[in-house]
């Protein structure tokens, strides 16, 4: 995949009949998903349906093994790339459980990451001054404290701070495909609004977002173009925002029952 694959014409991401799992356990059992630039997709499902597995497989987390199917990103096979190469090519995962890096300062971490990504895109590295300015702007946008830059990455952060920090990193690194893994869980309503606001500002024709969530609550603030229901490793139903509202009203059991009774699954 080249640094300038931006002129690729087809979908940004095509997941075809994806089977994947951890160890011997298969979690994704033939998942299909197509994402174009400019779109926001929500993948909803009950616990254990494979939502986080999908996000982690796309980001390349080593313990997840793909057993069948393919993932095409910008026209090339994504699965052969190491996680860092995927990130350099514009894939970003907002972690469900962000990891602490004791002693590694947020500023140093983000500068290193942005330098690598800009270099991959054929851009000059930002000077320390330029970077600090950019970073402080984004920190202000996410309504976080300016002394964040000096703190160790995620160390001693509250749950809400960690989630906000993920979105902060997203808006600094400007990926093409952002995967938000349960970013809304554990957020109070004010923090949820800040996070949603960050995502909405980030939204645009040259980007795509996949929101993985259990609850439709975040979708009150970020209106998705498509909603997919993931049950037992497969997407069983797709629709617009109204599908999320229907799920909210009727619960996942309703979909399960509909499928078991042989109702045709619309796509």
């Amino acid at each position: 995949m080249s640094a300038r694959a931006g002129n690729h014409k087809g979908p940004l991401l095509e997941v075809r009949d994806l089977h994947a799992g951890v160890g011997e356990v298969e979690i994704l059992k033939g998942l299909n998903l197509t994402v174009n630039l400019g779109e926001v997709h929500a993948v909803m499902g009950p616990n254990g349906s494979g939502k986080s597995t999908l996000a982690n497989v796309l980001a390349g987390k080593p313990e997840y093994k793909v057993t069948a199917g393919e993932v095409i990103y910008e026209g090339s096979n994504l699965l052969k790339l190491t996680p860092d190469k995927r990130a350099l090519n514009g894939i970003f995962l907002a972690f469900q459980y962000p990891v602490e890096l004791p002693g590694v300062r947020e500023r140093e971490f983000m500068k290193t990451a942005l330098d690598a990504i800009r270099e991959h895109r054929g851009l000059e590295k930002l000077s320390v001054r330029e970077f600090n300015k950019l970073f402080q702007e984004k920190i202000a946008q996410m309504e976080m404290s300016p002394d964040l830059v000096k703190r160790s990455v995620n160390e001693g952060f509250s749950g809400g701070e960690k989630k906000r920090n993920e979105i902060l990193q997203m808006v600094v690194l400007e990926p093409k495909l952002a995967l938000l893994d349960e970013t809304d869980s554990g957020l109070d309503i004010d923090a949820l609004k800040v996070v949603a606001n960050g995502v909405n500002k980030f939204r645009g024709p040259s980007r795509a977002i996949v929101i993985v969530t259990h609850y439709q609550r975040i979708l009150d603030y970020i209106t998705p173009d498509f909603v997919h229901v993931l049950i037992d490793g497969r997407i069983v139903r797709s629709g617009g925002h109204e599908l999320a509202l229907e799920l909210e009203a009727k619960g996942y059991e309703w979909i399960k029952e509909a499928i078991e009774s042989g109702e045709q699954v619309s796509v």
Binding site: P62, L101, G103, V104, I117
Partner: peptide, 30 residues
């Protein structure tokens, strides 16, 4: 140095070697 830490850094575009170095430097910062 956990696999999760390495994966977290790599997911941000940092190579495995640089990630390792960064985590160890962090450990020695004091």
């Amino acid at each position: 140095v956990s696999d999760d830490q390495l994966f977290y850094c790599m997911q941000r575009g940092i190579s495995e070697e640089d990630a390792q170095h960064m985590i160890i430097n962090g450990f020695c910062r004091g």
